[in-house]
Design a protein around this nucleic acid. Sequence first.
DNA 1: GTCTGTGAATGGGTTCACAGCT
DNA 2: AGCTGTGAACCCATTCACAGAC
Lengths: 254, 254
Amino acid sequence: MATGRTHRPATRSRGIPEATVARLPLYLRALTALSERSVPTVSSEELAAAAGVNSAKLRKDFSYLGSYGTRGVGYDVEYLVYQISRELGLTQDWPVVIVGIGNLGAALANYGGFASRGFRVAALIDADPAMAGRPVAGIPVQHTDELEAIIRDNGVSIGVIATPAGAAQQVCDRLVAAGVTSILNFAPTVLSVPDGVDVRKVDLSIELQILAFHEQRKAGEEAAAGTAAVPAATREQSATDQGPDGDVPAVMPA
Amino acid sequence: MATGRTHRPATRSRGIPEATVARLPLYLRALTALSERSVPTVSSEELAAAAGVNSAKLRKDFSYLGSYGTRGVGYDVEYLVYQISRELGLTQDWPVVIVGIGNLGAALANYGGFASRGFRVAALIDADPAMAGRPVAGIPVQHTDELEAIIRDNGVSIGVIATPAGAAQQVCDRLVAAGVTSILNFAPTVLSVPDGVDVRKVDLSIELQILAFHEQRKAGEEAAAGTAAVPAATREQSATDQGPDGDVPAVMPA
DNA sequence: GTCTGTGAATGGGTTCACAGCT
DNA sequence: AGCTGTGAACCCATTCACAGAC
């Protein structure tokens, strides 16, 4: 779209590196913001700053998708938005179910970022009969008994688990048995799944513990450096590369 | 504690790899579960399975902390729990503030995983005057105006941002100015912070987009492989190595 | 015999630096 | 002259495989 590029993807080889995949949503967000401001083109330097990465990495990442830029000029914003969306599979509609409608489940149901990027909350499911029928974010909560039917009827392939830890594996098993092949797990447990099913986890307390580690380190160094060697420097773009596994999240086909 | 080990940390060199740090909380969780079941020792193989990693990685990780195992036997559970806790800085109390008490903020406030691991919610802060005084998770919400005073009075160094994207940078600036040096950001924005401040981000929609990418890939391959080449295999431990930044989350001193 | 701790080998990802297109 | 695209170098992380401690 936009400037009619005549490129064919060329090296449409298999395999975009996992680390690159994990950054595509970041680029997409930055590009969407530019698009809304009607900015027509952007350089790797500018876009990298907006996404919080360095420009060499960004160019390398884009090189895996194809040659979508123009030397001496930069990237066409609209065109890139389209290419990345397509690559991520966001040009199609993904119905998702959220299981476990506590505070977190409700937060997820209300989260605008889903709907805006091709994800549609097909159903909210909770084990508590008292929740049944009650609407959350305009969607009525259904009972766990309906889980299998909901998955099948809506062709759901992505499930979100926001239950307590104790229930997570059981819910996971049922989701998988019913046909779900991608799971986003917020429960603090290691889920086991069959081959071919992807699991990504988000764990709030783990993130805090990692911060605590660095925080402790800072405190130690400060003490070691005499009294007040506050390094507090000038405001700059933070890199915070938490990538795969916190780290580079390599979602692997289990 | 437990079996009096006489080791000195020996190679107590600087620098545990970031990828290792990101896994320590995982090991700690698995160990805590074993501890509750009063299991005295555990082999690298068993513990690795419980944490969802392979045993070579686990042993290498532990080797960075020191030689805390016993060849031919395994690791003393209690002793390891203590060592990892200490390494992560969880033997001290970390007061945290949560800013933005919507559904997500409330979910975080109610999340048990915090309190159980040395984190104490020192205050909940929201910009909406209507929220002020209302208790969430037993803690009264305070108005944003109080932010600086709360940080200073409680010696808070870790802040959690659960506000809408638009408010996040501003909140971040105020937190940093007031003395916070570690931030966990749930708002879908890139935050810029001065050197010396760590930021980790958790982005729900990014995780879903990564899943969608793999989901799309699966669908494509399935189609390519004729009709129904469902690989669905036997239930096994899922690796799902999402490490740094989704990837290996390298929290870097910005 | 068992299981840890770790050098060596391998593999991915990031960064550098520049050739090549506009 | 400017900015992309990419080989090459570098660095970090994972995996292998075994020596060494129990």
